[in-house]
Each structure stands twice: as C-alpha cells, then as structure tokens.
Design a protein around this nucleic acid. Structure first.
Lengths: 217, 217
DNA sequence: TTTTGAATTTAGCTTAAACTAAAAATTTAT
DNA sequence: ATAAATTTTTAGTTTAAGCTAAATTCAAAA
C-alpha cells in the first residue's frame, strides 16, 4: 500500500504533465506546497520505485505504472466528488476538499458501490472526466470559452478550476456543465466576454473564460 | 488536528476502560498491536496533551477531553457503519473494516449529512449505540444471552464482536439486532443454548452467547 | 522478608517525510 | 565566452511513531 504522501505526489505530477511537456521538481514543489528539496527527495524515491523517471536537473515523468496509480487516485477523487454532490447533496464548490481527503482511504468495494449507484458515470460535477476502472479516460474538449467565436452557440463541458470561491462565482453566473449559451460579444485584448443564457446576458472576464471548456452543440 | 494514530489510541483506551476498571499500558499495546514500549510512549504523550491521566506502573484513564475525542471518533465509526450498510448495501460483516479507515477522514459536514439521511439514528448495524453529537450515549442492555433464563422470550439488542467471521456465523443463525426468540434450554457448565426463532430451533455456543446482549420485549 | 518473575518504563536506534542552508549545475545576459 | 542569476540537488537536522534490549518497579511465592 502506498502512503498518502506518495499518492499525492503522483497525482500532482500527473496533473502537471497534462499541461506541460516537461515537469520540473520545482513545479512539483510548487503544487505540493513543499520545499524544492523535499520534492527532489520524493521524486528520487518515486524513480526508485519505478513509478517515475527522473533526470537530474531536467525533470520528471511518470512511468506507465505511475500513470496507472495516478488514474486510480483520480478515479477515486472524481467519483467521490460526484457522489458527494448527487447522493449527499454537497454544493459543487465543497466537493473537492472532502474528496481530496477521502480519495486515499476508500476501498475498491466502496469505489465499485458508489460507481454502480451513480450508474458508471463519465464526468464529475465540474465536467472532469472520470477514468474508468481499467484506466481509460473519456474524451474531453480542450477549447476554452476564451477562444470561442462570437455569434455561435456553445455548451459548457467543463469548469477546470477547483477553487471554491471561483466555483461559487461561476455557479452564480449559471455556467455549469451542460448549460447552453450564445456568445454575444468578445472584447479584444483579453477583455471580457458577453454571453446570453436563456434570455439573460452575463459578462465574464477573460481569465475566467479560459477555465471554461466548451463544445458546439 | 489529531493524528490518526493518536485517535486510534484514544479509541482503544476508551473501549478498554468500558470493560475494565483499570487499563494498563500493556492492555493498550495488546489492543493496538504494538510493543509495550510504544504504548507507554504514546500514553505519556496523551497525558502531556491532557487527553489522559497516566500513573507510572499503574495505568491510564482518559480525561474528560479524552473521552470527548473518543466519542467523536466512535460516532464517526458507527454512523459510517450504518451508512455503509443502509445506503451502500454493505453486508454487516464488512462495515467495520471500511469504517475503521474512514472514521478519521470525514468532515463534520459529512457526518451531519449522513446522520440526517439516516434520520439521526441511535444504533449501528450491530446494535452498538451511536454517541450523539454532544456526547450522549443511548442506553444499552448489558445482559448477555449466556445468562438468560430458559422459557422466556427475548430480543437481541446488540452483537458485541466485530470480527467478520463471527458476524457471518451469527448472521447465518439469524441473530441480528431486533430479532425475537425464545430461550428453550440452557446446558449447565458453559454449555450450548437452544433457541427458537419463529418456528425453527438454533443451537449456539456459550462463548458466542456471551457476545449477544438481550432485552425482555 | 527476601527472592524471583512479570509488567512497565527508559534508553537508544530506525524510517519516512518534512525542513534549511550550502553546493552544484544550468540558463541567461553581458 | 564568461559572469551572474536561477534552478536543482546534496548534506545535515527535525519530528512522529515505531522497534529492541536493558533497566526498573511491583507483586507473588518461598
């Protein structure tokens, strides 16, 4: 059984390597909120365990077994988020923190039972894909609202930011996954965007729009 | 926040001092599965933290704050057991192990939500009392089936043993909490007992009968 | 009452994961 | 191309929880 700490590092590296080609030990330290030295030590340990490859001064990358571990944790996390939301009535801005703790402590039986109760779901309450038991990840859009074209209709697929405050702000605007809207206008130079949901208009900042992934209906 | 380890020691001491007037560090070591030296060290630490009183070579006893902590953990544990059983369909011999892990990691919000879903329950699936949020413990019988009188009718109130194998054995006999039966016969010298549930007879060993707490209907 | 044996504590060591400070390597700028 | 700045690693310390072995205290038997 891996320690909680090791699991957290693996998850951190996995999420970092989604967005960056190369992940440095400093990136890891930043995300984990530990010193650079601590990150280096742990990364070397992961390499020892064949969960990651590490080249000094260059960076880290998870091995296939490392990725497998990461996906298992991510599955726990996202299933839990959805379960807390659907079955226990948690608001979507609170599910992350609770899932963050519980993800390391549920058994496979627990995982299977909530999965069945939820009907083998594909996405969590923020629209993030839930890896399947065998490590397959549902497709997800990577087009952000920030780069959408005015005059078209879109659907929110995912809100890619887990900070509670941000989620409450987005939620108040009504921008949940699966919500349809029209992009009315878009200011140049990273300016705000104007949307129409139903028949009310909403204005959203460029920075926030970058966190919203969208699809054409 | 207390570490998991400290919480486990506190719970162990609490449960030990229910049955014995005086709890020794060795009792603690036994229940926790650690060396006597480790238990002594931790007990001294608990005393430092004012969670227990410790007199060298004599024994340990939880202080009022220690008891408060113990009851909070026990509440988590027993609510979780019931929740796993009722909401997730766990069999009663599996709830203990899962709850044992989760009890340290759920938030107060989680506790409150499952408590409400379950309708503020008083007893877990084994009939053990669930401490209330403010530390009150529902009454519980301490009459064991081993000392019951033949010819009377009884109700199982509690099965006081959490070993999965034992629970499966008892479950197969149909001896769940709230089940009614007649005590038909009782062999002397710690011999087996004969019960009638509905219109079938069951025989149960004295050792097992000691773990079953009963009530007059 | 003394001795012996069991229970308990003390002392000192181990491991994991963090830290700081110093050294080394790499990258950037002159 | 060299020096300066930044990043990364190494070295050594800290804390928590465990362990073993040795010492101490208590209780029971002679």
């Amino acid at each position: 059984m891996l320690s909680q700490s090791i699991e957290d590092y693996i998850k951190a590296i996995y999420l970092l390597q989604q967005n960056k080609e190369s992940v440095t030990t400093n990136d890891v330290a930043g995300r984990m909120g530990v010193s650079a030295a601590s990150a280096t030590n742990m990364v070397k340990k992961l390499a020892e365990m064949n969960l990651a490859q590490h080249v000094s001064y260059k960076g880290v990358r998870l091995t296939d077994s490392g990725i497998k571990v990461a996906l298992e944790i991510l599955r726990h996390h996202r299933l839990l988020e959805l379960y807390l939301h659907q079955a226990l009535g948690y608001s979507w801005d609170k599910v992350h923190d609770e899932a963050e703790h519980l993800e390391h402590h549920i058994s496979e039986e627990f995982e299977d039972r909530i999965n069945s109760l939820l009907g083998n779901p594909q996405y969590d309450p923020h629209g993030a894909p839930i890896p399947s038991r065998d490590g397959f990840i549902p497709a997800i859009s990577h087009d952000s609202l920030a780069h959408a074209e005015p005059a078209f209709e879109y659907i929110i697929q995912r809100v890619d930011d887990e900070r509670a405050e941000f989620l409450r702000y987005i939620g108040e605007l009504g921008l949940f996954p699966n919500v349809r809207f029209h992009l009315i206008a878009k200011e140049p130079f990273k300016g705000p965007l104007t949307l129409m949901i139903g028949n009310t208009t909403k204005i959203i900042g460029y920075e926030s729009a970058e966190k919203l992934f969208i699809l054409r209906p």
